[in-house]
Design a protein around this nucleic acid. Structure first.
Lengths: 204, 204
DNA sequence: ATAATTGGTGTACCTTAGTACATTAAGCGG
DNA sequence: CCGCTTAATGTACTAAGGTACACCAATTAT
């Protein structure tokens, strides 16, 4: 997706906020007022640029604006759009743009604290005794602070893993919740990327 | 909530559809066109009646309409509103109005077939080996047709239970997925109320 | 240093959009 | 049968709303 300028981003955010607050998009005059711009035509040029870059659709009708990029779409009061993390590139933090496959909606009820969230498709069966199965979607609060027994997303040697964080006699390790797997006592560089706060499963 | 006339209901549905399709509410002229009415003022009178009855909010701005009754709110393309079933009253089918605690939004991705759906909070730990834990929310397609090994919601002696449906040598039984529980060979009246198609878990 | 891009102002025009009033007709309830 | 409610038409007015063009300034890239 093409880059947008600071002012264009501001316009997208204002359109979304207007829809969230009032239920309908703003007019060009309303956008101009909010951005301390006197000319509706300046707003029109920004909007036309956003249309050309694929962030907006515009109908020739009053307030005929639609945000089509999910990253900027108006918030729904029942859901939040979070990045779905795919393959993690070496050397990048997990929420680097490179790792984002797409954005997906998740139930807003899972968001209990401020901060950034992401979703991750579970690979493997190491956590089945915690009720986390292969292909489940775990919802993760992006934080490096977790407590004993929290289920965390960790990064070891550029590999993403979901495990229970344990501390015993001052030693921290990652516990699988499947007796077929050993605990992991990380050496070298590793980090907690987030804490699992929810799970979504589709059953066929 | 006050009753509305047939034409008023039609207006609410058209407004919702316009928002779903185009992302913004219709103008009075657009509503008039869709209802084969020549006069915008007729539309205005219907709208004012809906405002007075508490179904709509109206701003004095172009397309300044907001549906405030959830029953008529525009559908969100990422979520569906389904009834959350609480205590099940004796002698009533599970989706009887009496059993509905409230409506909750669930991810639309779980809806793969036509039909009715409901949500159920899991009680007990009889299904933990299927990754279904206490307090999980299972999403259920309301059907009495299920196949071997499907996870179903059954009604036995007016009790709701979630179990795996098994058929062995022509005999049907309900299998717990926890070795601490026996299989159930239902006698007397029992029925399948639905098939589990999804699960949502919040983790604290 | 220059050209291109981004960002904006001011003016103008036309259509849309909401609002208001007078009026008529059909249906329903008492 | 009458009165009330619902449903609609027609006309008019004003402001909002979108679109277009000429022009200017600052920033960024070459």
């Amino acid at each position: 997706m093409k880059n947008i300028t600071k002012r264009q981003k501001e316009i997208l955010q204002l359109i979304a906020k207007n829809i969230e607050d009032k239920g309908y998009p703003p007019s060009y005059q309303e956008l101009a007022n909010q951005m301390n711009i006197k000319s509706k035509f300046a707003i029109l040029k920004h909007i036309d640029a956003l249309v050309a870059k694929g962030y907006l659709e515009k109908d020739s009708a009053a307030r005929g604006l639609r945000i089509i990029d999910p990253q900027y779409a108006p918030a729904n009061k029942n859901e939040v759009s979070v990045p779905l993390i795919g393959r993690v590139a070496a050397g990048f933090p997990i929420l680097a743009q490179e790792n984002v496959e797409r954005y997906i909606p998740i139930p807003r009820a899972m968001i209990k604290a401020e901060g950034r969230y992401f979703a991750l498709k579970v690979r493997g069966d190491s956590m089945i005794n915690a009720g986390i199965f292969e292909d489940d979607l775990v919802i993760v609060n992006s934080t490096n602070m977790a407590r004993n027994r929290d289920i965390v997303v960790a990064l070891l040697h550029d590999e993403v893993t979901v495990k229970r964080l344990m501390t015993d006699r001052g030693q921290t390790f990652l516990k699988a919740e499947n007796p077929n797997y050993d605990n992991i006592y990380p050496e070298g560089e590793w980090s907690i990327q987030g804490k699992v706060v929810g799970l979504v499963r589709e059953i066929n």
